[in-house]
Amino acid sequence: MLTQEMALITRDELLLPDGRIEIRVAGPSSLKLIAEVLKGHFPLAFAMSRPQANPPCYPLATQCEIIDFNQLEDDCLGLVLEGKQRVKIFSAAKRRDGNWIARTLSCNNWREEPIKGEFELISAALEQFYLVNPALQELYADLHLEDATWVSQRWLEVLPLYNRDKQVLVNQPDCHKTMDFVLELIKSHAGQ
């Protein structure tokens, strides 16, 4: 069992493998952590926050890479992160500067699989969602609407669910329960 130390960023959002998210980083200690990541001192893990917990996040996180950055109007740093690999957080320590370093173990990503049958509705709905939310679509060069795993993970990232409910789906061995959940959600709203 080979564990790895990673710099930890927590937010209320979810980032999964092949997903992209734009975040805002402010303050000297957070900027220092990003500098350490960019210098190769630590890989970066992104996790959903969990208030009043230690570490301050759910145990399943995503190792990610910084694929773009820019200075925002308020002098904060805007980062675009791309999820790469699911990781489990075993422990984390808060440094004196307030940043967290987590001890992680790589987990299996969900395997790619084609979307078939009635589940094509989920793919079409995601395509429509991105048309209505162009800022999210702009994060991606390509939409992999033919891949059930890619589509279901993007839905998990954008659906307005409680973090603990998203974690139930994220912790499944594959995308099937998420596909069923999203399909039922779409069908129930189509009937209204």
Score class of each variant (00 low, 15 high):
residue 183 L to H: 11
residue 4 Q to A: 13
residue 157 E to F: 12
residue 73 E to F: 07
residue 159 L to T: 03
residue 167 Q to R: 07
residue 118 E to W: 06
residue 90 F to S: 13
residue 37 V to N: 11
residue 13 E to K: 10
residue 42 F to N: 13
residue 133 N to P: 00
residue 45 A to M: 13
residue 175 C to E: 03
residue 22 E to I: 01
residue 44 L to T: 04
residue 103 R to Q: 14
residue 113 E to Q: 11
residue 100 W to M: 12
residue 51 P to G: 08
residue 9 I to K: 10
residue 187 K to P: 12
residue 85 Q to Y: 10
residue 179 M to L: 12
residue 113 E to Y: 10
residue 4 Q to F: 05
residue 145 L to D: 07
residue 14 L to K: 03
residue 164 R to D: 01
residue 190 A to H: 09
residue 116 K to L: 08
residue 106 S to C: 12
residue 106 S to A: 13
residue 66 I to D: 12
residue 182 V to Y: 06
residue 83 G to K: 09
residue 21 I to W: 05
residue 130 Y to G: 00
residue 121 L to D: 00
residue 94 K to S: 08
residue 130 Y to R: 02
residue 4 Q to K: 12
residue 70 N to F: 14
residue 49 S to Q: 14
residue 58 Y to S: 10
residue 89 I to D: 15
residue 105 L to S: 13
residue 28 P to V: 03
residue 83 G to M: 09
residue 118 E to C: 10
residue 82 E to V: 00
residue 138 E to C: 04
residue 51 P to F: 03
residue 9 I to A: 14
residue 165 D to R: 12
residue 27 G to F: 10
residue 145 L to Q: 04
residue 189 H to C: 05
residue 139 L to K: 06
residue 6 M to R: 15
residue 130 Y to C: 03
residue 166 K to T: 09
residue 66 I to T: 07
residue 107 C to D: 01
residue 186 I to W: 02
residue 153 Q to E: 04
residue 71 Q to P: 14
residue 160 P to S: 13
residue 130 Y to A: 00
residue 162 Y to I: 03
residue 174 D to T: 08
residue 103 R to S: 12
residue 72 L to P: 08
residue 3 T to S: 15
residue 170 V to D: 04
residue 114 P to R: 09
residue 69 F to P: 08
residue 137 Q to H: 05
residue 158 V to D: 01
residue 59 P to T: 01
residue 172 Q to C: 11
residue 66 I to Q: 03
residue 18 D to C: 00
residue 74 D to S: 09
residue 146 E to P: 08
residue 112 E to N: 05
